[in-house]
């Protein structure tokens, strides 16, 4: 039930945002996000964006996986 998915903010006005992922477009409320920007990946749950996805951290986590793989190979 706490299922939440990252989607990209493609448009917004006030608290009303439009997000997209894999061609699916949805209206979401973005009142819980500070300083939203077009292109942000937002974590969407029950019609609201509840947090921004930190792309830098996402890439760092992936690099960590890669390092581990390289180390073990």
């Amino acid at each position: 039930m706490c299922l939440a998915v990252p989607m990209k903010l493609i448009q917004f006005e006030g608290v009303n945002g439009v997000v997209e992922s894999d061609g699916v477009i949805m209206d979401v409320n973005i009142m819980l996000i500070e300083e939203p920007k077009i292109g942000d990946y937002l974590i969407i749950h029950a019609g609201f964006a509840i947090q921004k996805l930190d792309e830098k951290e996402a890439l760092e986590t992936i690099n960590l996986f890669k390092e581990l793989r390289d180390e073990s190979e």
């Binding site: 996000i33 500070e34 947090q51 996805l53 930190d54 951290e57 986590t61």
Partner: peptide
């Protein structure tokens, strides 16, 4: 925190306040 791309130590202050 392993899920660093989505979780900050302080969480989401705006959501907590709400």
């Amino acid at each position: 925190i392993q899920y660093k791309r989505a979780v900050k130590p302080e969480g989401n202050p705006a959501a907590l306040k709400m």
